[in-house]
């Protein structure tokens, strides 16, 4: 099987060779530079950088805001996907098209637009300022930016699954006497759960590394609103390559772990759902 198709169509050597070369030169070798550089640090150096209070604070902030934003996106992304797939209303197509805005819009533009809106003097920030709630330049502002960035990940992973979800599951549940609420909770949600978790993990991973949309709205106060990617930037500007690399290595390991989890989730979902 494998050999016949190999022989029949030409170009395997050329395309695979080029792809691998390109991938190695552009991605693999440069990325391994981070780990090689990190390896030249002594344990002490590494831990001193990573456990420095300011660095720790940035990790905590990055982690928690990404987690919070991914959670918000899991809830609202599910809601949006549900509404777009199951209901018909004027403007649905338009909204569906808009979902991808965060993919296509440069992050810097998103950053300044959100900051202008959610600052105390902005259209939305001004609504909250009288209540004593500050949005921009706080962790809430960072979370808002990450919600913006992560939304399409959840919607676009849940949407196709929902689209393909056979009505017969819900019908079977109804025939067994289950109320609509029970059906949604016990039958539909578990069917969507793998996709929802994948979307959540994707949004979370994206949030950990996000820079452009966040730097403007975060205010960048050390210990308070300074995210880890910004700290990498700061260290680089001070020519502290070692420090920047140590932080980057931690972020990379976290991202790869997430990638691994996402792959596992997808494979599991495929296995369970392949049955007719």
């Amino acid at each position: 099987m494998r050999n016949t198709s190999k022989r029949l169509l030409p170009g395997f050597g050329l395309t695979m060779g080029f792809s691998l070369l390109y991938l190695s030169l552009l991605v693999l070798i440069p990325l391994s530079a981070v780990f090689l550089k990190a390896a030249t640090l002594s344990w002490d150096q590494f831990w001193q950088t990573v456990l420095n209070p300011r660095v720790l604070a940035s990790f905590r902030l990055t982690f928690l805001t990404s987690l919070g934003a991914a959670a918000v996106n899991a809830v609202f992304g599910l809601l949006v996907a549900w509404v777009l797939v199951r209901y018909r209303f004027p403007g649905r197509r338009f909204l569906d098209g808009l979902i991808d805005i965060p993919f296509a819009l440069p992050t810097a533009v998103a950053g300044i637009a959100l900051t202008t809106l959610y600052a105390d003097s902005g259209w939305i920030g001004a609504l909250f300022a009288p209540l004593g709630i500050k949005l921009a330049y706080t962790p809430i502002g960072i979370t808002i930016a990450l919600v913006f960035i992560g939304l399409p990940f959840v919607v676009r992973t849940v949407q196709p699954v929902l689209q393909e979800l056979d009505h017969s599951f819900e019908e079977a549940s109804a025939c067994l006497g289950a109320s609509r609420t029970r059906t949604l909770w016990k039958v539909v949600l578990p069917e969507l759960l793998p996709a929802l978790l994948t979307g959540f993990a994707l949004a979370f991973a994206r949030g950990l590394g996000e820079y452009g949309s966040v730097v403007f709205i975060s205010g960048n106060m050390p210990m308070k609103t300074e995210i880890a990617p910004l700290l990498i930037m700061t260290k680089l500007e001070q020519f502290d390559y070692a420090g920047a690399t140590a932080i980057a290595a931690v972020l990379l390991v976290l991202s790869f772990l997430l990638l691994f989890v996402i792959n596992g989730l997808q494979r599991r979902a495929n296995r369970v759902q392949r049955q007719a």
């Binding site: 017969s168 019908e171 079977a172 025939c175 578990p190 369970v272 759902q273 007719a276």
Partner: peptide, 13 residues
């Protein structure tokens, strides 16, 4: 009523 679907529609999880 009890309904047996053509594709069975068993709850997969």
């Amino acid at each position: 009523i009890g309904f047996v679907f053509q594709n069975y529609a068993l709850f997969r999880h």
